[in-house]
């Protein structure tokens, strides 16, 4: 059940996506809790405790509570989704995720009609997280989506890739994947999911609001103040790899209706 068949129409006339190697996906990461060097997460994340894993689901839901991860996933079959991942820094990968649709998980808790946004939070384990100790950012890392974005069938909670459980530096045991947004929206190692009425805070947006918007949709026409977003470099091409054009919504044009009538330059 690959994404290629499932997302067929949108991807039909495109290159077949060739996933990056496991070494690349596990060796080149942004997970600032473990430091800001791309190799830091692979160096330090092993010490993070991921078992048992409980996710607090609260806010505007019918059945709030501390859910063991297995309960949230029970009855849902993980499927493979081969997605592009575009980092705001101008590089990209292709990753064969295994996961479930976030909408199905939200339904388990029962979303109340007043809910308009979903807020997420990453675990904080200061004693094993050098980046938390160094206060690289204001932790815990938080992110958010509008409810319709969260319920979109492309949005998944990933628990593995290449058929293996997620490596800790990739956000074990469970992380968000929103393929049409810059990578930092896809929050890792989630310990809390809250349904809320108001737009929730998002770490990079709080850190530097002029550089990182709440929406952070991949958009080649809206530059980051410090670098262009028109092109990207696919990881794995070596010293002479050439840049390729970045696609609107990272190539997932089917999400465009979510933003109908919105000025995407204003709501970047």
């Amino acid at each position: 059940l690959g994404a290629a068949t499932w997302a067929g129409p949108a991807l039909a006339q495109e290159e077949a996506l060739e996933p990056n190697s496991l070494e690349e996906i596990r060796g080149y990461n942004n997970f600032y809790e473990f430091g800001y060097d791309k190799g830091d997460p692979a160096r330090h994340a092993d010490a993070m405790a991921t078992e048992p894993w409980t996710i607090k689901v609260d806010g505007l839901v019918d059945r709030p509570g501390d859910y063991p991860l297995a309960d949230l996933l029970a009855g849902l079959e993980a499927e493979e989704r081969i997605y592009r991942l575009r980092c705001v820094e101008g590089w990209s990968m292709v990753i064969p995720w295994n996961g479930v649709e976030l909408a199905d998980v939200l339904d388990k808790a029962g979303v109340r009609p007043e809910a308009r946004f979903v807020a997420f939070e990453t675990t904080v384990q200061p004693e094993v997280m050098p980046g938390v100790q160094a206060r690289v950012l204001d932790f815990p890392y938080v992110e958010g989506l509008r409810l319709d974005e969260a319920r979109h069938p492309l949005t998944i909670l990933a628990t593995g890739l290449y058929g293996e459980p997620l490596a800790k530096q990739n956000g074990a045991p469970v992380r968000l994947v929103v393929p049409w947004k810059y990578g930092f929206k896809s929050i890792k190692s989630i310990v809390r999911i809250s349904l809320v009425e108001e737009q929730p805070p998002a770490t990079w947006n709080l850190t530097n609001p002029s550089e990182y918007g709440f929406y952070s949709n991949v958009n080649p026409e809206v530059d980051h103040p410090r670098w262009s977003q028109a092109t990207e470099r696919r990881i794995g091409g070596g010293l002479f790899s050439s840049r390729q054009p970045t696609l609107m919504f990272n190539g997932y044009a089917e999400v465009a209706p979510l933003y109908e009538g919105m000025d995407l330059r204003e709501n970047f």
Partner: peptide, 15 residues
């Protein structure tokens, strides 16, 4: 190293 060390993963940025 940039040319030959594949453990660098992203040699352009590294170099």
């Amino acid at each position: 190293r940039g040319l030959t060390d594949f453990t660098l993963i992203e040699p352009i940025d590294w170099l």
